[in-house]
Design a binder for these strands. Structure first.
Lengths: 404, 404
DNA sequence: GCGGATTTGTTGACAACTATGACAAACTGC
DNA sequence: GCAGTTTGTCATAGTTGTCAACAAATCCGC
């Protein structure tokens, strides 16, 4: 059912647009907001005033910029009063963080863990413990200072997430199947705020598009090399999630029918040719060697080891193959490479460009920017927080008035 | 610049929602509109009244359905007063048609043409001639009857279209490059209505999603087998066009690096393995034999010719490979197969299902419906008209009041 | 056939929001 | 200090959907 628009929706939408503009473009004067939104001065005054009373933005004294006329007050996002709890679940570690509305990480904690503790119960217990420690730390640091309202909980999981009920349908590396992580976590944390769960690559894509290398892009494709390969497509700041939220599983995109069998059962998936395992294998290292093996590989590349450089060149070739397919299907203006891919990008840049050039469709120049991610490992943290901030951004007044 | 929402936008949006609902779900009573949109009875009364005075809908007498209460008048799309001109440019023929607001084809004409006339000038001159003949026929048939206002011109071209200025960037089968078809056509037709150009596969996707096999689907993927392979993805009734309008070129999606060289220059594109040329080649027929060769192939399949059936089975295998990749990337709820694929679907159904089953991601059931297209060759006609109706659907009052 | 229950259309008062225009405030440049 | 320019503020007006009350049209049971 398509819900129609009602009169108050106008206000809600315009509040969102102003807040969003400030988050994306940084501090702006009121008059800049007027020209950016097309609204009148009075409308902007009302909207900024309401956001200010919701403590979501602050107005600073006008600064004269040398041009004639009365100077306009500067409005910026107020990063002091609200926050999101970002929870990251990886195979080898878990992390929790408090993220402010401007995307900055206020405080965070990480915990390495042995493979025996990846099961649901152990994971949730470890996360709850970490959250309690973070809370204690916050209380000490605050020292009578600011109370930051936590508005949402965003959870990153390396697996397939069903959007409708936040269930982890499959997370092969964790051994989870149909795991109701959100429900279990909500009970353990008892914060009274429902968690929202997302796929790690999708969250990375979201963060890069809003605060990282994808800022300014309309149609961004994010491809990240972790143990496997993940991806996400973001149109106009919104992730394309697909019917159930499973979109972006580019790792299992068939590129080589003569290739290797994938963990998913099919043959020749993209992630059998690119990503950590494929690269380590080609470089003659243990493909299950994890982070330590990757560091070894990068060191060897640094010292121009031939086998290693050849492996990276091969990686570039297959990366280009898949990216070409995705460009033909999605037509992005920017492709952001994350994770392992962004680390080896400087080394494989030339080869990658050379492989991409002739593969363009019909000789038509596609004008696609291929760049490395700029947020690094923090992308997932920020992305999880963005997920948690979703309701606030969609309807600022409702969310802020709810718990006040 | 994101334009903010203003008060009149509410009405515009609600008019669109009501009109759209009637087009998609067929005639509805006012009370059905109330529950579908969430608006009040008074609001619906106002909206329906305005659409009626714009001559876009008609209200029929209430029909009692046996339930208690006052019966509600039936509202349906008025298909008599407005229309779109759909122009289809193929390699071997061109077609023009008048399509009503409800998606029905009012009148149409086709013209087969020799390969010598595919150049821009000859094409436009042939199209203009055909449009004039259609106009004459309309005038005769009308016989003092209804005047149908033509609100837009939609043009289908088998090539890459730049959305921003309706230029055909590349149409290999026509030999066109950077061809400003819309501008030239506007001058030749002199209708005073700007043409909007779309890719044939994208238009087929749009039509199937609104009036064909994709009705009711939220996330539809359309894959059509013509000489090459085209595709389109439609989310919530809107085509995903990409940054420049090039999205959906699934034919040049790399599936077999050990395969054949494609006309685009790359190796192993999907359309080297599936589509008319690939199928004819495998069946031992002339791959450039066109429609006649396809009919021969279908006849042989009918009489259970072994080579032909093996070729179709191979087609099913490669079709499944590509579809799997697209499902993993897009997560559609429905995949609609068009063109050649829908014709051979009954023959390859079992093989296709068998190939698709094990290729699902991580053993998670994906619950994707794979169906044949239901509009046949009319899909492109209807899709071109939908493109032309775009402005009307986006703002009914403005468009109808403009030329009145 | 008749009255009650139910559903729906209509009408007018109301609320929410933005637009408009007049005026005041704050700055630059001369 | 004054003219010119830009911006904030305020009151008023216009548009649109909501709400509540009432009228209309149907079904059902008697």
């Amino acid at each position: 059912m398509v819900v129609a628009v009602r009169a108050p929706h106008v206000r809600q939408t315009n509040l969102t647009i102003v807040l969003d503009h400030l988050r994306r473009h940084g501090p702006s004067s009121r008059s800049q907001l007027v020209s950016a939104t097309g609204l009148t001065r009075s409308a902007i005054a009302g909207l900024v005033g309401e956001l200010e009373s919701l403590r979501l933005v602050i107005e600073a004294a006008p600064e004269s910029d040398g041009s004639p006329g009365r100077p306009s007050p500067i409005v910026r996002v107020d990063d002091r009063h609200v926050g999101a709890l970002a929870i990251e679940i990886f195979v080898d570690e878990i992390g929790v963080a408090i993220v402010a509305l401007d995307g900055s990480i206020v405080s965070s904690m990480r915990l390495a863990r042995p493979r025996e503790r990846v099961a649901l119960a152990a994971t949730v217990s470890d996360v709850a413990g970490l959250v309690r420690r973070l809370e204690r730390q916050r209380r000490v640091h605050r020292g009578g200072g600011l109370e930051r309202r936590i508005l949402g909980v965003g959870v990153s999981v390396p697996g397939l997430i069903r959007e409708s009920d936040n269930v982890v349908v499959a997370a092969p590396n964790l051994g989870w199947t149909n795991t109701p992580i959100a429900a279990v976590l909500d009970e353990a944390l008892a914060l009274g705020i429902p968690s929202i769960v997302g796929n790690d690559a999708d969250l990375g894509a979201l963060a890069e598009s809003r605060f990282g290398a994808g800022v300014g892009s309309d149609h961004m494709l994010f491809v990240t090399g972790e143990v496997g390969v993940g991806g996400g497509f973001v149109v106009a700041g919104r992730p394309v999630t697909g019917h159930s939220g499973y979109a972006g599983e580019v790792g299992h995109f068939p590129v080589n029918p003569a290739g290797q069998r994938c963990t998913c059962g099919a043959v020749g998936c993209w992630e059998t040719e690119v990503g950590e395992r494929a690269l380590l294998r080609r470089a003659g290292l243990d493909e299950h060697g994890g982070g330590r093996a990757v560091e070894e590989l990068l060191a060897r590349a640094e010292s121009s080891d031939e086998v290693t450089l050849a492996a990276i060149a091969e990686e570039a070739k297959w990366l280009a193959t898949g990216i070409t397919g995705l460009i033909n299907v999605f037509d992005p203006d920017t492709v952001v490479l994350g994770g392992l891919f962004s680390r080896i990008l400087p080394i494989m840049r030339d080869r990658l460009d050379a492989e991409l050039a002739p593969l363009q469709y019909m000789g038509v120049p596609r004008d696609v920017l291929v760049v490395g991610a700029s947020l690094g490992p923090q992308a997932v943290t920020v992305g999880a927080a963005e997920l948690a901030f979703g309701p606030l951004l969609a309807d600022p007044a409702r969310v802020m008035n709810a718990g006040a």
